[in-house]
Computed example of a mutant assay.
Amino acid sequence: MNKLKFVVRGGFDGQTAVQQKPTFTLVEGWKQAEIQGPVGVLPAALWDEVPAGDPYILHACILTVQPIDPQALLEVRTGEPTQVRAHYQPSADNMRLTLVRPSDELRLVTSPQAQVKLELLVESIGGVNELGSRLYQWADSTLKARAAGVRTARFTGAATLPGWLGTFHVIYDSVNPGTLLLPARSVVPLDALLTVTRKGPGMPLLQAAPGDTFAGGAFAQAIQRSGFIVNNGEQWTWIAD
C-alpha cells in the first residue's frame, strides 16, 4: 500500500494544477510532500508514486484545523473532453473507496486556510492477493454495518416513519397526540426492530400503511408509554407496556 500525505499551504482552490513534482520525505510511515497553495488539480499518477500503469483503489481524507466546509469536494476526472467519474466530500471519517486510473486527474476544493492535509491510501487492484479487493470488501461491510446500526429520531407531531434497518428508536415528545404512519411492511427486514417511546403528555398513535395490519387485525396501536414493533413476515407484531 502506498501512503501519501500532502501538506498544502493555502488550501485547495479546485483550479490550479500542480506543475512540478514536489519533494517527498518519509514522515511517520507516510511519504509526505509540502505544496505552496492554493492548488486544486493533482495528476492521478501522483508523479509515479502509485503503481505504474494499473488502475488503483483510492481512499482520501482531508484534515483541517477548521470544520470541513460543506463545499469541500474531491473529483476524479478523465478526458478529453473532461468527464467527472466520481464526486464526493473526502471528510475525515469518510469510508469511500474509488477506482482511479493513473491517466485521470484529482480535483480538490476546500475553503482558503493556512494549512490543509490530504491523506491518500493507494492500493493496486492487481497486486499480490488483490489487497485492493479486500479493502473494498472491508469498506463495503463497514458501510453496511453503519446502515444496519442503531438510529434515534425525535418527533413532536404527526409524521411518516421511513423504512429502517437494524434498530430504530423513535421518541414522541409533544403535548398533543399525533399519528406516526409506518412504512410499507415489505420494505422492513424481518430482523429490524422499532421502539416507540412516549415522552410528553401527547399520546402517539402508531398506524399501519394501507394493506398492512398489526397482529389481531388492528390497523393502529396507541402507545401509552413505550412499544416494540417488528415485522413477522405476515403482520406487524407489537408489545407495549
Score class of each variant (00 low, 15 high):
Val230His: 09
Trp164Thr: 01
Leu135His: 12
Pro112Phe: 10
Leu4Trp: 00
Ala159Leu: 04
Leu73His: 09
Arg85Ala: 09
Ala145Ser: 15
Val230Arg: 08
Gly233Val: 02
Thr64Asp: 12
Gly126His: 14
Trp164Phe: 13
Ser91Asn: 02
Val116Met: 01
Gly29Ser: 03
Pro204Leu: 15
Leu120Phe: 06
His169Thr: 03
Leu190Phe: 02
Gln224Gly: 07
Ala45Phe: 09
Asn2Phe: 11
Arg151Val: 11
Glu119Gln: 15
Gln115Lys: 09
Leu99His: 07
Arg146Asp: 10
Val175Trp: 13
Leu182Gln: 00
Arg225Asn: 11
Gln66Glu: 14
Arg151Gln: 15
Ala215Arg: 10
Pro201Trp: 06
Asn94Val: 14
Asp191Gln: 13
Val39Trp: 00
Asp212Pro: 15
Trp138Asn: 14
Thr78Gln: 11
Ile125His: 14
Ile62Val: 06
Gly163Ile: 08
Pro22Phe: 06
Arg154Met: 08
Val27Glu: 04
Val41Asn: 08
His87Asn: 15
Gly11Met: 03
Phe228Arg: 13
Gln224Leu: 13
Asn231Trp: 11
Ile125Met: 13
Arg198Asp: 01
Trp164Arg: 02
Gln221Glu: 11
Arg198Ala: 01
Ser186Lys: 05
Leu58Glu: 07
Thr197His: 11
Tyr56Pro: 07
Asp140Phe: 15
Phe6Trp: 03
Ile125Asp: 11
Ile68Glu: 02
Glu130Ala: 13
Arg134Glu: 15
Leu106Thr: 02
Ser186Asp: 05
Lys21Ala: 11
Arg225Pro: 06
Ala72Ser: 15
Ala215Leu: 12
Ser124Gly: 08
Arg96Gln: 08
